[in-house]
């Protein structure tokens, strides 16, 4: 790790001021991704702004949505009574991230800002029509994820919270990469009054994506049988040591079936 500055402000505005005073600063949330990157000397920011003191870790019921602060840890989401009642699939997703240690450090904001193509949360954001609230604006999920490790966030824009719409029903099923246990394929299915949304993570070369054909099929019949005839294309799917595009395509269908079973 290169030596760098560390600041821990007490509010978002102080955090923004701090990061602007640095050449190239980085927000530090749970550090589960950022710290290993620094330790391997793959990044050398001019400073770290730790946003764990900025009061960004509340969970609230907003009527149609559940709003979760960016600094809320995966373990807190998994255990939250509010989340378990309104969107149990989201609690289940959080409970399946990494291991106990990671769930007690890693945060919602960090995961979504990072947009790792194998991360679980982006699929929930996309399927649950979430709104990403930043210090300057509110971004709709469909506009937020712009590619592998890419988001609509501007430089020094900070995610403050994310509101997840309450679905009539939803489920998240993940096929873990055997080694890392990140999603090799993760499917978040959410049913709303106006239709079903299916978001797939772990599989797309461009990161998380919605699957239009499965959405159409499940919107007319929320049942695994509705998918039987569907041919899932392997085009644009990730190819790596662990899974070919064809295998991933199979898993997408299979995990979706299991999600609606």
């Amino acid at each position: 790790m290169y030596s760098t500055k560390y600041i821990k402000p007490n509010s978002t505005s102080e955090a923004l001021e701090a990061i602007k005073s640095m050449g190239e600063g980085k927000f530090l949330a749970g550090g589960m991704t950022l710290i290993p990157t620094l330790k391997q000397r793959l990044a050398s920011p001019d400073g770290l702004v730790d946003i764990s003191g900025c009061d960004l870790d509340s969970i609230s019921d907003e009527g149609d949505a559940i709003k979760i602060g960016a600094m809320t840890k995966h373990a807190s989401v998994a255990e939250s009574g509010l989340v378990n009642k309104a969107i149990p699939a989201l609690a289940k997703l959080a409970d399946g991230i990494g291991d106990r240690q990671v769930r007690n450090r890693g945060t919602l904001g960090g995961s979504v800002a990072n947009n790792d193509p194998s991360a679980c949360y982006p699929s929930a954001v996309l399927a649950l029509k979430a709104i990403v609230h930043t210090n300057t604006r509110s971004i709709e999920a469909d506009e937020f994820f712009t590619g592998m490790f890419e988001t609509a966030l501007e430089e020094n824009e900070i995610i403050e919270a994310i509101s997840f719409s309450k679905p009539t029903r939803a489920n998240y099923v993940k096929f873990p990469n055997p080694a890392s246990r990140y999603a090799m394929v993760g499917v978040f299915v959410a049913q709303f009054n106006d239709g079903v949304r299916v978001a797939v993570t772990g599989a797309g070369e461009g990161g998380v994506f919605r699957h239009a054909e499965m959405e159409a099929a499940l919107s007319s019949n929320y049942n695994a049988d509705a998918l039987s005839a569907l041919e899932i294309s392997s085009e644009g799917l990730i190819s790596d040591l662990h899974a070919s595009p064809e295998y991933r395509a199979n898993l997408i269908k299979e995990m979706t079936k299991r999600a609606v079973a």
Binding site: P178, A179, S180, Y182, L241, H242
Partner: peptide
Amino acid sequence: AHYDENGQLLTASYMDYCM
């Protein structure tokens, strides 16, 4: 343990080497 054709160890961390 998997080396690619250039002799780079692709499974050089627990992200890819499955214990």
